[in-house]
Every structure is written in structure tokens, then in C-alpha cells.
């Protein structure tokens, strides 16, 4: 499965993030008999977030398989199928429910190749609708990227745009190892240009979404958009913010982040998962250990989720994760050397 290199002249259309994912899955199903989709209510229902949509009509219920509400069993079946030659894409209805399947994801899928000394391969994609902002409260709104990012053997992705949602899913599908893709639920309706045809977005490569001189914001998923909004506001004040879209939590693109911090000397990590022991800690530590350390001219800041479950009340829910004004305020303080 060699990825065709991206042709810049390729045609693009406006698609939503969810449509881009569906398009990727449809292309994969059409291209390779070994690809199957598994998940709860992904068939005629079209998926809880209508991501699989009409795929069952096009490919039938054997290829687009509704599983019982058995996350552990379902995930394990996907592991066994991947181990023996299928290329399953397993949808968790909410990433929160993956906690029921941690055994299979962490003990089995992630470790199989290693435990078997490289003699086995588990090419498997877990799709995880994640994040807060939908009023679904504590058990349907979490951001577990860092949890899974802590497991060697997994790859963990967080696309922020429709183009990457398709490109990273296809890259995950081509990858010989298990890949966990976190899809932010608030992004499903986001529209953007999506190239036609089969293309892959490289795993482990961050994207510089906005260049700037004064400070670097590394953000992921929806936080990329909030950081860009904050950067636009700060630009009016003459503060020039560089925004990096992490895209891949594991592996992390050290190079792009280090190069940016070397340039700006200031870093803010913005992520939706709980602030403590999260992505920001990893990036901060990575910078502290890197050659960018000598270029740091201020403490590194982390903006992450509060140390609490996601609350129901809409104002509390907003307050529980970084919002654009929070990012703006933190960046302003850092740029003004008040930190």
C-alpha cells in the first residue's frame, strides 16, 4: 500500500470533517477486501455521529459490521482479525467507552508485535469520537489522547481539519501497527477543502498552521482552531504567534516544535485533556531536554483541562477546557514578559 505522493494540483472540494472520514473509509472499503468496519450502530443507523453514514448500503453488513454493545469483546475481535489478515477500522461510539476495552488495546494490540518478537502484526485502526462541548457531561466528553499516548506500540493521532481527518485515517489504515485516531466531536461539522483521491498525511509530522515570531503555541484537535483565533486577535496588538498543529501525539514531531521554540523562545501548550501529566508535560519536558532549551526566554505554559470531570452546565463545561480567550490572555502575558 504505497501512498501516492500528494499532488498539489489535485482537485479539492469542500467537505465536512465527518464526510472526509467517511470518504476515506469508503475508498478503503472499495480498494481492499480486507478492510472491514466494526462498531456499535455504524450500519443502518449510520454511526452515533453519522460518520459511517451510508457505507453499509454501499458495502453491506458484513463489511460494515454492527457489533453488540461489547467494547472489550468487539475490540478483541478486531485485534484477532487484524492479527490474522483483516484490516479492521473499529469505531468506539465515544472514546470514553474505550476504557471498557483497555485490556485489548493496551495489553494485546499494542504489545503483540513486541511480545512475539516481531513475528506478528496488528494493523488496526481505532476511531475515537472525543472531547467536550456537546453537553454530554462527564462520561461522554473526555480526552484520552495522553492515556493512549503513554503506550508504546500504539500510534495516536488527532486530526484538526477535514483534509487531515481523511489523510491521517488513510495513513493509519496503511500503517502496520495499531493506530488510535481521536476525532473531536465539535469538528465533525467543520468544513474544509479536502483533496480528491487517495492520499495520506504523514504520521508523526506536525503542521505549522500560522507562522509567528513572538511565541509558539502547540495545540491539538479543536485547540488548534482556538489558538488560531487567539493569534488573530493578538496580531492586532502586534503580537506575532506561531501556531503548531500537533496532529500526532505518538510519535510527537520533536523537530518542528524544537525549531519553532528556537525561533520564538516562548512556548504555550494547549490541549483539552486534563492539564496534569498530559501532552503539555511531555512537550515541555521534551523542549527542556532539547537544544531549544537554551533558546527559552520565559517559562513554558500549559493550558489544559481543569482537574475535574467535564461538567454538564454549559458555562462550567466551557470553563473546564481552554477557550480562545484563555489562550489569548496567556499568550498576551507571555509575549509581554509578564510570566
Amino acid at each position: 500500500m504505497n501512498a501516492p505522493t500528494r499532488n498539489p494540483e489535485i482537485q479539492t472540494r469542500e467537505l465536512s470533517y465527518a464526510e472526509a472520514i467517511r470518504e476515506a473509509m469508503g475508498m478503503a472499503l472499495a480498494r481492499d477486501e480486507r478492510v472491514i468496519l466494526m462498531g456499535e450502530d455504524i450500519g443502518v443507523y449510520g454511526g452515533a455521529f453519522q460518520v459511517t453514514g451510508d457505507l453499509v448500503e454501499r458495502f453491506g453488513p458484513d463489511r460494515v459490521r454492527d457489533t453488540p454493545i461489547s467494547e472489550l469483546g468487539g475490540a478483541g475481535v478486531a485485534v484477532g482479525a487484524a492479527l490474522t489478515g483483516l484490516r479492521p477500522i473499529f469505531e468506539f461510539q465515544f472514546s470514553d467507552f474505550a476504557t471498557l476495552a483497555m485490556e485489548q488495546i493496551v495489553n494485546q494490540a499494542a504489545k503483540m508485535r513486541y511480545m512475539l518478537g516481531g513475528e506478528a502484526s496488528v494493523p488496526l485502526v481505532f476511531r475515537m469520537p472525543a472531547g467536550s462541548g456537546t453537553g454530554a457531561a462527564a462520561q461522554h466528553s473526555q480526552s484520552f489522547e495522553a492515556w493512549f499516548g503513554h503506550v508504546p506500540g500504539l500510534k495516536v493521532l488527532q486530526p484538526s481539519t477535514p483534509e487531515d481527518a481523511k489523510g491521517l485515517l488513510l495513513a493509519a489504515l496503511e500503517d502496520p501497527d495499531p493506530v488510535v485516531v481521536f476525532e473531536h466531536k465539535l469538528l465533525y461539522k467543520l468544513k474544509g477543502h479536502v483533496p480528491d483521491g487517495w492520499y495520506t498525511t504523514p504520521i508523526g509530522k506536525a503542521a505549522v498552521r500560522r507562522e509567528g515570531r513572538d511565541l509558539t503555541i502547540v495545540a491539538s484537535a479543536i485547540m488548534v482552531h482556538r489558538a488560531l483565533a487567539a493569534a488573530e486577535k493578538l496580531a492586532e496588538e502586534g503580537i506575532d504567534v506561531e501556531v503548531i498543529d500537533l496532529r500526532s501525539v505518538r510519535p510527537i514531531d520533536h523537530e518542528t516544535i524544537i525549531a519553532s521554540v528556537r525561533k520564538t523562545g516562548r512556548l504555550i501548550c494547549v490541549y483539552e485533556g486534563v492539564r496534569t501529566l498530559g501532552i503539555g508535560a511531555e512537550i515541555s519536558a521534551m523542549i527542556a531536554e532539547s537544544e531549544a532549551f537554551d533558546y527559552l526566554d520565559a517559562p513554558i505554559l500549559r493550558l489544559g483541562g481543569v482537574e475535574a470531570p467535564i461538567p454538564y452546565n454549559p458555562e462550567l463545561e466551557k470553563a473546564a477546557v481552554p477557550q480562545a480567550p484563555d489562550i489569548e490572555a496567556a499568550a498576551r502575558k507571555l509575549a509581554r514578559k509578564e510570566v
Partner: peptide, 24 residues
Amino acid sequence: ATPAARAAARQAGLDLARLVGSGP
């Protein structure tokens, strides 16, 4: 002092103890 200030001072052969910083 910040790491960047330390690196710059090291390169210039400056003694940081002789400076008063403008930061917090």
C-alpha cells in the same frame, strides 16, 4: 535567568550576577 539569557551570557562571557533582570 532564563535559559536563553544564560546561553547568551555564556557566549558573550558575561557574568549574570552583574545584571539585574527586567522580568518577574
